[in-house]
């Protein structure tokens, strides 16, 4: 294997390690699919710096996610040291959630994703939902009701 191949392989493995970490509140949904991974820098001597962005800066799961990422990347052969940073920019939006993660959130957690201003659709029947109140469980979520089947739907929003 050439030096370039080795570097590429390490990069792939570090990315895979980060991808193996799930959101603590959505088991089975990777933080990478949710759009939290921004940068991975690997220096020649095996020092890795992972740049993540938070869904919102006061999110209480940040230290847990960073610790999980650090532990997973440290296990990759060829990695000597890992640092995980929470970046202030860019700002996370719901548009960063991949299509795969949106499907998983809908199918497995009955959670819809709000993209832009349009009403999110019901994960059960596909109809439009309406927001119930200006109160929600947290800054990044609201609670909607499906106008057709009546399902109570949590919505992830930016």
């Amino acid at each position: 294997m050439t030096g370039i191949d080795l570097a590429e392989s390490l990069d792939v493995q570090v990315h895979a390690a980060v991808r193996s970490i799930d959101d603590p509140e959505y088991p089975g949904v990777s933080i990478v699919e949710l759009g939290l991974l921004e940068t991975v820098d690997i220096s020649a001597n095996g020092r890795v710096t992972v740049g993540l962005i938070p869904t919102f800066s006061g999110c209480p799961a940040l230290s847990m996610i960073a610790a999980d990422v650090k532990a997973a990347v440290a296990k990759v052969v060829g990695v000597d040291a890992v640092e995980v940073h929470w970046l202030r920019a860019p700002v996370w939006t719901a548009n960063r959630i991949s299509g795969e993660a949106r499907t998983a959130l809908a199918d497995r957690f009955t959670v819809a994703v709000q993209l832009g201003k349009s009403a999110p659709t019901c994960p059960l029947c596909g109809s439009a939902t309406t927001e119930q109140s200006m109160f929600g469980p947290s800054r990044c979520r609201s609670v909607n009701t499906c106008s057709t089947c009546g399902e109570t739907v949590e919505v992830m929003r930016a």
Binding site: F135, G136, P137, S138, R141, V143, T152, E154
Partner: peptide, 9 residues
């Protein structure tokens, strides 16, 4: 926030 959110749902 989670407990209140659960109650809400």
């Amino acid at each position: 926030q989670d407990e209140i959110g659960h109650g809400h749902l």
